[in-house]
Each structure stands twice: as C-alpha cells, then as structure tokens.
C-alpha cells in the first residue's frame, strides 16, 4: 500500500471496486448455487472454479454443466454457449468508445470482465469520469470486484456441495429465478413480441425435438423475425430523419 503509485489512479481503482459491491453481493448466491450444482453434476470444486475463471458468464455455465451431465457433445455445448453469450458483442461495442486510446493489454483485460451486470454499472459510472486513464481504472475495479466474487463464491459453493450433500430442492430454481429477475428488468414494450414469440417457439420445439436444440432454434428464429419486423417498420416509415436511439419500431 505504500508504493508510490499515482494517488489519482489508485483512487479510481478503489472507487470502481467500491462500486462493484452491489454486484459482488448479488453474484454470491448465484455463484454458490453454481458451485453446489456443479459438484452435484460430478465436477470437482476446482473444475467449477476453472470454469468460472475462464468463462465468467453465469447462464452459459449453468447450461454447460447440465449439458455435460446429460452427455452432450462439446460442439453442441460450444454452439449453445455462443448463442447464449453473443450478446456480449453489443455490450462490448458500446463500452469501447469510453477508451479511444486503449492499449492491447487493457483491451484484453477489460474485455474479460464484461457481464450483463458490470456492463450496466460501467455504462452508468464511466459517463461521470473525465479522464480515460481514470475510466480504465474504474472499469478495472468494477470488473475485478464482480469477477472475484463470482470466482470465490463458486469455489465456496463447490466446497459446500462436496462436504455437505444438501438436499434442498430450491437449488433447482436458482438459475430460473435469476433469469426471471433479469426478465423483469429487460422486457419492454418494444421487445415483448419477440419475447412471446420465442417463448411459444421454445415450448413447441422443446416438446418436438430432443436435446437442447430448441434453445438455438427458437432464439435465432424469434430474434430474426423481430429484427426483420423492425427493419420493415423502419423502411416503411417516412424516409426522413432516422431517430438516433431505439425509437424505430
């Protein structure tokens, strides 16, 4: 702590770390649940930790351990992960303008910590920070806080699952609860039709096709039809000014 690092920069990092606290607390029960489920699906606690370290994307990790357990091929798991995590491209694209003079190590490091939750927080916080150098430190603090919580609580969950064979059916619902809570914050009037279409397609495909293919099929179809509909609405509307944000249908 007594090194002669620039005080400003250290402050920015500490500020980011403090900001990450709400995420870190929110991740804890999900990560513990992931660790417990992973060991119940036959992984060791450090295999679960390894996955949390490298992948750091909750939903896809839960799906992957379930698919591993069911004996899915790695290509099927890879493809599902791609579909589940492709949204990170958009988050990344909209964070990049905060760092016009970023260096390669910063790019490689900051990218890894981008999740739904850190993205929302970073977007809110980085707007208020004037210097790019400080923004990097703040984002590093936010990402690192969230990442540390995810990793530590995964391992903790793995150890709990290993030493205490808990029979608590609530764990089966942890991931669904997380997704349902995410739904309440992401559903809007503009995407509700896509949501309903995806729900309907997913139920039908799940009943008709064995395995997890229904996920990819329903998501690709519903998002494709939704995007086509928006584009169509856009070209049909007057060929005048295009609203800058997402006002187009």
């Amino acid at each position: 702590m007594n090194q002669a690092v620039s005080l400003e920069i250290r402050k920015s990092f500490a500020y980011g770390l403090r900001q990450s606290l709400t995420i870190a607390i929110g991740y804890a029960p999900v990560a513990v649940t992931f660790g417990i489920l992973a060991t119940q699906f036959g992984l060791t606690f450090w295999e679960a930790g390894l996955m949390s370290f490298f992948v750091f994307a909750g939903a896809s990790q839960f799906i992957a351990i379930e698919m591993l357990h069911q004996g899915a091929t790695i290509w099927m798991i890879g493809l599902t992960t791609l579909i589940v995590n492709i949204r990170h491209v958009l988050m990344s694209v909209s964070v990049v303008p905060f760092f016009p003079t970023r260096t390669l190590p910063w790019s490689l490091g900051l990218a890894h910590g981008l999740t739904d939750e850190t993205f929302v927080l970073n977007t809110k916080v980085l707007k208020e920070v004037v210097q790019e150098e400080d923004r990097r430190q703040v984002m590093l603090g936010i990402n690192l806080g969230a990442f540390a919580s995810w990793l530590v609580f995964t391992i903790l969950g793995g150890l709990i699952g290993r030493w205490l064979p808990i029979q608590f059916s609530g764990f089966q619902f942890a991931l669904l609860a997380l997704f349902i809570i995410l739904t309440t914050t992401s559903i809007t009037r503009k995407n509700a039709m896509t949501y309903l279409l995806a729900a309907l397609l997913a139920v039908v495909f799940k009943l008709l096709i064995p395995g997890k293919i229904y996920l990819i099929l329903s998501v690709a179809l519903a998002a494709g039809i939704g995007a086509w509909w928006r584009q169509r609405g856009h070209t049909l509307s007057i060929a005048g000014k295009r609203p800058n944000d997402k006002l187009n249908k």
């Binding site: 790019s107 669904l176 992401s186 559903i187 279409l197 329903s218 998501v219 584009q231």
Partner: peptide, 30 residues
C-alpha cells in the same frame, strides 16, 4: 469489439438481431 472497433457502431438488421437475442433467450430459457 475492443480489438476491431474504433468507436463506430453496428446498425441495421444485425444490430436489431443481436439486440433481441437476450430477451428471446430469456424467454427460451425460462
């Protein structure tokens, strides 16, 4: 995007598609 983008954004069908994937995914997962 960190490696390739200079600050430009994606537009059109591709943007709408990627934007709608998360909500469609939540529906399909839940």
């Amino acid at each position: 995007p960190f490696l390739l983008f200079k600050g430009k954004n994606v537009h059109g069908f591709v943007r709408d598609f990627i934007e709608l994937v998360p909500i469609a995914l939540l529906a399909a997962l839940v």
